[in-house]
């Protein structure tokens, strides 16, 4: 049985990388008495994946960890056990069971808070044309126009700064929201990034 555990990663946990989160989640699972399915081999560990890795310095209210259980208790019992074992900053919101794997994540919604000398309209205008940035991947580094990838843009001025809400591709074609900061360098500085929704 696959378990989809939805959680928030907030506060100081934004200083923890994805790799470190994986280890923390493994330990969290081991602190529960849940019937977790382990991998075989010399170094047995819970089989654990995440819907979409979250970069260091970013927060989220919509993360999903996927692991497997044999003969699981009711969903609310699992949720209770996970909550009891969770460290500060990691809050479980929901547990659902499924016979099938989680499909690939297609897109993610972000709230990007920026400080800028410009107004929201000014920043909006700055992002209207093509947005060439130097994009790094494992294979190569190239200049890419990220503008077409940034969808459903909404601009708002708040007390804390200018807030851009947008939807970016995830999964195999993922765009890290920090590239928007790279493009706006000199015009705006990103203060915080919050992931608010995943789309499958």
């Amino acid at each position: 049985m696959y378990v989809f555990a939805e959680f928030e990663k907030r506060g100081i946990l934004r200083y923890i990388s994805h790799l470190d989160l994986q280890r923390a989640m493994t330990r969290l699972l081991l602190r529960t008495d849940l019937p977790i399915v382990f991998s075989e081999g010399f170094n047995p560990h819970p089989k654990l994946t995440f819907a979409q890795p979250l970069s260091i310095f970013q927060e989220s209210v919509c993360e999903i960890a996927v692991f497997r259980m044999d003969g699981p208790p009711p969903e609310e019992k699992t949720l209770e056990a996970l909550r009891a074992a969770a460290p500060e900053g990691l809050t479980f919101r929901k547990v659902t069971y499924s016979e099938r794997k989680l499909p690939e994540c297609r897109a993610a919604k972000y709230e990007i808070l920026m400080s800028s000398a410009l107004t929201a309209d000014g920043l909006k205008a700055a992002m209207e044309g093509p947005m060439p940035v130097l994009k790094k991947s494992k294979a190569k580094t190239e200049t890419v126009d990220i503008s077409p990838m940034i969808k459903e843009r909404e601009w708002r001025e708040t007390e804390d700064g200018i807030l851009l809400t947008c939807v970016l591709p995830a999964g195999s074609k993922t765009l890290n929201p920090s590239y928007i900061g790279a493009f706006l360098e000199g015009k705006a500085a990103i203060r915080s990034i919050l992931r608010t929704e995943l789309y499958f």
């Binding site: 506060g11 100081i12 946990l13 200083y15 923890i16 990388s17 470190d20 260091i56 310095f57 460290p87 500060e88 900053g89």
Partner: peptide, 8 residues
């Protein structure tokens, strides 16, 4: 940064 924030 995880070295400098505590909260473990």
């Amino acid at each position: 940064p995880g070295r400098y924030v505590g909260g473990e």
